[in-house]
Amino acid sequence: MGRLVARRLLWGVPMLLLVSFFSFLLVSLVPGDPARSVLGPLAPQEQVDTLHQQMGLDRPLPEQYASWLGDAVRGDLGASLVTGTDVGQLLTPRLPATLSLIIPATLTAALVGIVLGVASAVRGGVLGRLVDMLSMVGLAVPGFWLALVLVSWFAVRWRLFPATGYTAFADSPVEWLRSLVLPVAAVSLGAVTAVAKQTRDSMLDALNRDFVRVMQANGLSRWSIVYRHALRNAAIPVVSVLGVICASLLGAAVLVENIFGLPGLGSGAALAAVQHDIPLLQGAVIYFTLIVIVVGLVVDVCHAWLDPKVRTR
């Protein structure tokens, strides 16, 4: 298991390099001048040119990236062009809000989706068709539209949950939970239906295998066959889907955090893009990439636990 973790971590290094390079390239192509954004539209062109040189934006792009990468390796992601504050100091306090959104949403998708998928596979009939229908609806409904509907119903009309804002867990666990109910519901609907559909298909495949028939012939209970043996075999593709879903929720977090006013990485990245704050936006991309690497590592560890053959590869 240790060799598996070390190998996956080593694969994360070139992934970080590639993502950082292409994000640096794409951000540089965004229309607008960071120096002009800092000084304002009425600033004289001479001041803009001077600040442009001070920021190092007049240097060739490969030189700019090499300079940034050298600092990033030492843990320095630069300073915000707008506020002058260290990027790490701006983004690290935003990390708990994003994780508080992504982790509960993934757990909700896993628990509810697996329960629905197993039940529909075992019982079939109406429940199976219902899961298929919910899967289509969940994938078709945009998360931002669902977020607006949830705010309209549960925050404005019935006043059950706050419409915007975020309370840290250390300040008040109850208010922390209340501030996350609507955002988590908004981003997890599509994830729940995707997990339910994958679980149902994987369970049907597992229940039709020969080892299940042998167990039935040997008199094993239905509960033991379904939950101790078939579900373990069906869980491998489900775990892979959960890993993809968790990573994709980072993209949904950009919109949902802005709708609900959550001070997370997504809203910080959106603000940095509007202000053309290249160091802050580049730092947010690095944070997102690190989260994806950790998610991939967790998925690989779960695969190794579920399938011993993976540990020997």
Rank of each mutant, 00 (worst) to 15 (best):
R8D: 01
P14A: 11
L18F: 13
S23L: 15
F24S: 12
F24P: 05
L25E: 05
P31D: 11
A35T: 12
G40K: 07
P62K: 05
E63V: 15
Y65A: 03
G75C: 02
L77T: 00
A79W: 07
D86P: 09
V87L: 07
A97T: 03
T98H: 00
S100Y: 02
L101Q: 01
T106C: 09
A110P: 00
L111M: 12
L111R: 08
V112K: 06
V112H: 07
G113M: 00
A121L: 03
A121N: 04
L130R: 01
V141L: 13
P142V: 05
F144Q: 06
S152K: 14
F154W: 10
F161I: 01
Y166M: 10
E175W: 07
L182T: 01
L189F: 15
L189K: 03
K197G: 08
V212K: 04
A217S: 14
S221W: 06
W223G: 13
Y227H: 13
A230I: 09
L231M: 12
V238D: 03
I245M: 04
L250N: 01
A253T: 05
V254D: 02
G261A: 02
P263T: 02
A270R: 05
L271K: 15
A272T: 02
Q275K: 14
H276G: 12
A284E: 08
Y287G: 03
T289R: 08
V294G: 11
V299L: 03
C302T: 14
A304R: 10
L306A: 09
L306G: 06
R313C: 10
